[in-house]
């Protein structure tokens, strides 16, 4: 165990850890502060400032009242929520089936899954398939695309293997079918792994940007991450400022583009921050337990 009390080496370690963590804390809080600053004072903000200069919600108002951002936000929410629910349900039900004893054909199915996990066909064939399915420019392309992630399926299967057979057999003797056993017995037991893979799916769906930018090129179907990229990476402010017509000329003149960008980044981070406590509780403990078992 570590030595108790204060030592010089411990002080140095503590400072080092604090410094590393500050490189994460400062830029993120700085973005919040910038987005919340009053427009005429944004230029005073330095990169290490943690508090807004003045206070105004105008940047958020401009970004959120922009119909393009509003639409992208709704599209992202739809894909994330619908997609995550479908993913969790079908991953769990498939994991249940694949862990049943003596399932005929399990071995070849597992070989297929491993192939799917490691062989990436690449973006062109995937684009062709989406085109043939007539899913391009439909939000369903991103909902249905890779609904089941093989990796998460395997994590779920590991959990299912631990569900005592006796429990399931007892229910079957009582006349319950597989579907009933799954819904009534397995699902309630699987609360922690369900939340864990639910977080995995939700985070990756909310953050997905490359495939969305390809499958959803219609501006009406754009998702938030793709729009954010336009603002932040391509510095394309036309879409962002188009809603400024809602404001008085005086206000428009004051708007600061870098603060608008900051507000958009903050909006894209908020769902993650809201989920973060749950993520830490389930997702992290999952990894920890996995580690300890090793």
């Amino acid at each position: 165990m570590a030595a108790k009390g204060f030592t010089v080496s411990k002080l140095i370690l503590g400072l080092l850890l604090t410094a590393i963590t500050l490189t994460m804390f400062v830029p993120i809080v700085n973005l919040f502060a910038k987005a919340l600053s009053s427009p005429d004072k944004v230029y005073l903000m330095k990169g290490y400032d943690l508090l807004p200069k003045g206070f105004s919600l105008l940047h958020f108002k401009v970004v959120l009242s922009n119909p393009i951002v509003g639409k992208a936000l709704l599209n992202s929410l739809f894909i994330t929520v619908t997609g995550t629910l479908l993913s969790v349900f079908f991953t769990t039900i498939s994991a249940y089936v694949l862990t049943r004893k003596n399932l005929v054909g399990k071995a070849p199915l597992m070989v297929f899954l491993i192939i799917f996990m490691i062989l990436e066909p690449g973006i062109v064939p995937e684009y062709m398939v989406m085109k043939d399915l007539r899913l391009l420019d439909s939000l369903w392309s991103m909902v249905l695309y890779r609904t089941i992630n093989v990796f998460y399926l395997i994590i779920m299967m590991r959990f299912m293997e631990d569900v005592p057979d006796s429990l399931i057999e007892a229910a079957k003797i009582d006349g319950a079918g597989h579907m009933r056993v799954f819904v009534r017995i397995v699902l309630p037991l699987a609360k922690v792994p369900l939340l864990t893979i639910g977080m995995f799916y939700a985070v990756s769906r909310w953050n997905e940007f490359f495939k969305s930018s390809i499958f959803l090129s219609d501006p009406d179907k754009t998702v938030l991450q793709v729009l954010l990229r336009q603002f932040v990476v391509d510095n394309d402010s036309t879409a962002l400022l188009s809603a400024a017509t809602l404001l008085s000329n005086n206000e428009v003149a004051q708007l600061d583009f870098s603060a608008l960008k900051a507000a958009t980044i903050v909006i894209a981070m908020i769902p993650i921050l809201v989920l973060y406590p749950i993520i830490l509780k389930y997702y992290t403990s999952g990894v920890m337990e996995g580690g300890i078992k090793e």
Partner: peptide, 9 residues
């Protein structure tokens, strides 16, 4: 847990 777009920003 942040997307690369957000990290780039």
């Amino acid at each position: 847990f942040l997307s690369w777009v957000v990290i780039a920003g």
